[in-house]
Amino acid sequence: MPGSAFPPPSPDSPPETPRSGITRRGFLKGAGITAASTALLEGVQTLRADAESEATPGVTEFGPGADSVRLHVNGAEHVLDIEPRTTLADALRLHLGLTGSKIVCDRGVCSGCTVWLDKIPVNSCMTLAIDAIGHHITTIEGLSSESEPHPVQAAFVRHDAMQCGYCTPGMVMSCAALLERNPHPTEHDIRHAVSGNLCRCGTYPKVFAATLDAAGSRRA
């Protein structure tokens, strides 16, 4: 089971008798309920299917301590020792030093922590790192290279679509994801795409203008 952190449960052992309060299967069920997007739900289901299709006898539980997991971030594989409760945001920020995504509300309402799972934007503060296993994670750091910024990043700079800049990585990830799925958005589409992104400095008008401009320059 490549990319998976934890050995799957033995088919012989009772699935819901945890040693320390939680089983992989029960945990995944819970995680599935809180998952933030359809894509993530699909990912979890895939993971669960993997878990149930491969048998490694003798080990049925995991956590609460740290285990070794493999995450695919910005085109590279990383092995991290994390507890199962570790959010993707913490895994990225604390374990991998990818501090571009910000934790602001810590409950999935401000989108400051937006990253992509397989190009779908998710709130990494509401996503468990283990739920991201097997997915391609893209953070703001992986959106572009220093020498060649993403068109949305370049447009944000041109239009001064930032003030303190703390919401900017999340805004950029949301707007860039919009252009991935809709290369010709209207301002209404952009407002919709960033309706979950909170900016306290009040930079929205320039975010709209920058994203429209980025869409135009991509077309050109």
Binding site: K102, Q153, Y166
Partner: peptide, 23 residues
């Protein structure tokens, strides 16, 4: 005149290191 924000590229790229990012 409207020079581009000095730290705009750092902010747009996530390279800007805030206090909360210091490790």
């Amino acid at each position: 005149h409207s020079a581009h924000r000095y730290d705009g590229p750092d902010k747009a790229s996530g390279r800007a290191r805030y206090t909360s990012d210091v490790q």
